[in-house]
Design a protein around this nucleic acid. Structure first.
Lengths: 157, 157
DNA sequence: AAGCATTCGTCAACCAGGTTGTCTTTGTCA
DNA sequence: TGACAAAGACAACCTGGTTGACGAATGCTT
């Protein structure tokens, strides 16, 4: 039993991610956010955590500023984000979550946590915590750095 | 300490997958397969496991037959796969790995296993095995079904 | 044997989320 | 003041998918 090849491990990680994210997107659609995409969640988390322009957002998500600008355009389109001119730097276009954007974040976090709770039931709290700890040890050097002060304070309940 | 929100868990899974796959692609490039993409690995695993035409490949990878056909075209382009007319069904185009394709699979499996070995060093064999077991319990119902008789017999050493 | 439904592959158009490269505008600093 | 760095925008392109429409081959039923 058990996979135990490196390639299988990759498939497990990807599968876990997909299971989780697919469900969140599906649920978000059912709860009034039919146009939310996975990438939006992450971008908005980074914005909430302090990325207030395209270049900075790109840095935090480890993508180019052009890619970040496209994502921002999509978010503005959908009404999750607005841009305002920076009073201090005429080059900058500051971005902010709208009320609608904040509502999406609250709902998204709630769904993520519901899925996590189901996983906790399946594995037991200890085992899930252990799994997260070990994953953190493996992934500590990930380039995706969305978690900065600001996010945690938001509350995910 | 520790993340412990559902969204953080998603990021961990994605981060782990990316770390692993990025390294494999980078190493494959260094070892003579500069044109190998992550999707190729999975498609070729499915082919090796018995998917011998575009429609079947699509089913196993949980994508449309059109997407599978594009992947096959890319693999043929790169010399990893060849197609032959089916003797029994004139509609079918059978696909097979070439020698070059088999070489890629061997090298890819070896690299995956090297990374896994490094993770094992970092976590300890027990902890990594435990992590894989728990992930398997969470992901058992993944739609990606690449593992069928045929692959395991190939040997990944 | 005929007729119909299914399956296989393919074409075309499109989308999401990225990339590189080039450019203008604006800011900073020596 | 002049050189350089940084922000945003534009264009072209790539990968890996999607839908929809289709003809040709096959299989199933009557």
């Amino acid at each position: 039993m058990s996979p135990r090849s490196g390639a299988d491990l990759a498939l497990l990680l990807l599968g876990g991610y997909r299971n989780l994210v697919d469900e969140v997107v599906r649920e978000l659609a059912a709860r009034g956010f039919p146009d939310a995409r996975p990438a939006h969640e992450y971008a908005m988390r980074a914005i909430q955590a302090g990325a207030d322009n395209a270049s900075e957002l790109g840095r935090r998500l480890a993508v180019t500023k052009q890619a970040a600008a496209k994502t921002i355009a999509a978010l503005v389109d959908r009404g999750y984000v607005t841009t305002v001119e920076s009073p201090v730097d005429a080059r900058r276009k500051q971005i902010q979550l709208t009320e609608h954007g904040l509502a999406l974040m609250r709902e998204g976090a709630a769904i993520f946590d519901e899925v996590r709770a189901r996983w906790e039931e399946r594995l037991g709290a200890d085992e899930l915590a252990r799994l997260e700890t070990q994953l953190t040890r493996l992934v500590g050097d990930s380039p995706i750095d969305v978690n900065a002060p600001g996010w945690a304070a938001q509350g995910t309940s």
